[in-house]
Amino acid sequence: MDRIDRMILHELEQDGRLTNADLAAKVGLTPTPCLRRVRNLERIGVIRGYRADLDGSFLDSGFQPFATVALKQGDWHLMTEFEAKVAALPQVLEAHRLFGDPDYLLRIAVADITAYERFYAETLCRLPGVAQVTTHLTMKVVKGNRGLLAGHE
């Protein structure tokens, strides 16, 4: 990847709805070579897809706590079973296996604190191998996800 590919990626991270003509103008190319570069970045997997950045408060998903999960000492089967169950839960937006303690960090989206309490008690704490769940509430988003190349212009 060269400097122009990185410029293309940066622009698409900021606005995935840019037309090819607008994108080409922003990165200093004509439309045909720009489109060729974008298609190549898609083909090799650098660009994995395009999607809208949604406001969860309009979709009964505005309450988004983080939860850390510690598993009971167990075997590989228990961990893979836990991961499969978590991956299938629509309320879990992200799930990361961590080094050390705790074992997992989850980002969850539900309507409100009452919905989270229900999800916590009826689902999260009942997942295979769970020893402890700790909830972390965001006080303020200091820096949100602006993309991998934001600030690298």
Rank of each mutant, 00 (worst) to 15 (best):
I4G: 06
I4C: 10
I8C: 10
I8W: 03
L9F: 09
L9Y: 04
L9T: 12
E13Q: 12
D15T: 08
D15L: 06
G16E: 03
G16S: 14
N20S: 08
A25I: 06
A25N: 09
K26A: 15
G28Q: 08
L29G: 07
L29R: 08
T30I: 09
C34E: 10
L35M: 12
R37D: 06
E42D: 10
I47E: 00
I47S: 02
G49R: 06
G49V: 07
G49Q: 03
Y50R: 05
R51P: 04
R51G: 15
L54M: 09
D55Y: 04
S57G: 03
F58T: 01
F58D: 02
S61A: 09
G62H: 01
G62E: 00
G62F: 06
F63A: 00
F63G: 01
F63Y: 13
Q64A: 01
P65Y: 01
P65H: 00
A67W: 02
T68H: 03
T68I: 02
T68Y: 05
V69D: 00
V69G: 02
L71V: 02
L71G: 01
K72H: 09
K72D: 05
Q73N: 04
Q73E: 14
Q73T: 07
G74L: 02
G74S: 01
W76I: 03
W76E: 08
L78E: 03
T80A: 08
A84D: 06
K85E: 09
V86R: 11
A88G: 05
Q91M: 09
V92W: 09
H96A: 13
L98T: 11
D101A: 15
D101C: 04
D103P: 03
I108E: 03
I108N: 03
I108H: 09
A109R: 04
A109K: 09
D112W: 06
A115C: 00
E117R: 10
F119V: 05
Y120R: 12
Y120Q: 13
A121S: 14
E122Q: 14
E122G: 12
E122N: 09
E122Y: 14
T123C: 02
T123E: 08
L124P: 05
L124T: 08
L124C: 06
C125F: 05
C125R: 13
C125K: 10
C125Y: 06
C125N: 13
R126A: 13
L127H: 02
V130L: 11
V130S: 04
Q132L: 13
Q132Y: 06
V133I: 14
T134A: 13
H136R: 10
H136K: 06
M139Y: 14
V141E: 11
V141Q: 15
V142G: 03
V142Q: 11
